[in-house]
Amino acid sequence: MVCWRRLPVRDLSLRRWDNEWVASDTISGDTHLLSLAAGIILARLQAGPATTAELTVALLDTGQVEGDAVQECLDALAALDFIEPCPA
């Protein structure tokens, strides 16, 4: 099972409003609008590394775990250099 963590060099600020999140790397100033699911995943990873399964559980209450939704969120966050795979 793949494990994920926040990129250690990132210093992220996160804020949720309604069903959207804003994430900002306060060192670079990079700021992105995130979906509800992506925001929840990033907030979970702020607390520490987690497996894809654990992140899927974190999203169960949101109703946003259908199909490849979790993997798509993980790929999107990795593309932003917010998260990366890590040893389990």
């Binding site: 210093d11 600020s13 804020r15 900002s24 306060t26 670079s28 100033g29 700021t31």
Partner: peptide, 13 residues
């Protein structure tokens, strides 16, 4: 905003 970093984010939020 970018220059202020966490302070800028907090103020705008």
């Amino acid at each position: 905003y970018s220059l202020l970093g966490a302070q800028g984010f907090a103020a705008l939020a």
